[in-house]
């Protein structure tokens, strides 16, 4: 671990550059001129009280908000310099590059094997050998292979919750995303299962860029490199996690992390 605190202005490549991002649900403004950058192969956490806009911001990054009727967006979200809200963006391809893990594990009611290969089959991969290889590689990367390799034909719904969540991660990894969005990925899990997912995230960041929304401030502190604190649709403070949790520059952030507010 480096002793120098990470800074958004420090060295490293940014995957996402978000500037002056406003989002409206009808008349309600859920995001207000949000500025944030997301560093490659780092974990960026978004924290803040319920309704602060953190999940909304996360869903902007692979255009999941498009699915909500009456949503209007202004500002820019660049992924590797390309505006993902430009008319020419292939949204399906965007969601393949920027995958998502949800609050509750949502495996399909299929076998473990068919869960992992689902996206690949949709994408036209049918070679059994190729699929077998990807299943093993993805399950290994999600730390699930040793646990389930002898029962890949069992239903995914038989797995305990944390393994279901890891299966969802494996399903995501199978289509080789570049960025992984995690929306409260541990809120349905007990502390031991949570620790396993957190350790998995630390392993995954060697290859993937991860952005996590969490209600659990301690989780953000434990796993992330960068943290953004949001309140009422605004990004109050964004910086290196070590700085945010030891010497935040904004009083509002300090009030939140010390439990005086929120």
């Amino acid at each position: 671990m480096s002793s120098a605190p990470l800074s958004p202005d420090g060295p490293g490549r940014n995957r996402f550059e978000i500037s002056k991002l406003d989002l409206f649900y009808g008349d309600f403004q859920a995001l207000k001129s949000v500025e944030m950058s997301v560093r490659d192969r780092m974990i960026t956490a978004l924290i803040g009280p319920s309704g602060c806009g953190k999940s909304t911001l996360l869903r902007c990054l692979n255009r999941m908000n498009d699915l909500i009727h009456g949503t209007r967006i202004q500002g820019k979200v660049l992924l590797d310099g390309q505006d993902i809200y430009h008319a020419s963006t292939d949204v399906t391809n965007l969601r393949k590059r920027v995958g998502m893990v949800f609050q509750r594990p949502n495996p399909f009611p299929l076998s473990l094997y068919n869960n992992v290969v689902y996206g690949l089959r949709v994408a036209g991969v049918h070679s059994r050998k190729e699929l077998d290889e990807i299943v093993e590689r993805s399950l290994r990367a999600a730390w699930l292979w040793d646990v389930v390799s002898d029962r890949l034909d069992h239903s995914a719904l038989e797995l305990p919750l944390d393994q279901q969540q890891r299966l969802c991660v494996a399903r995501l990894l199978a289509v080789q995303p570049e960025v992984i969005l995690m929306d409260e990925p541990c809120s349905a899990l007990d502390p031991i299962a949570t620790m396993k997912i957190e350790e998995l995230m630390l392993e995954l960041k060697k290859e993937y860029t991860i952005i996590i929304v969490t209600h659990n401030m301690q989780q953000a502190a434990r796993v992330s490199d960068f943290t953004g604190y949001m309140l009422l649709g605004e990004m109050i403070e964004f910086g290196g996690t070590k700085d945010i949790f030891t010497r935040p520059s904004n009083k509002l952030t300090d009030d939140y992390i010390t439990g005086k507010y929120g």
Binding site: M1, S3, P5, Q218, A221, R222, K242, F245, T246
Partner: peptide, 15 residues
């Protein structure tokens, strides 16, 4: 100073 900062950060981040 470096070690103290490191230890404080570990306390803050890992409780």
């Amino acid at each position: 100073i470096d070690i103290e900062n490191e230890a404080i950060a570990l306390m803050a981040l890992h409780q």
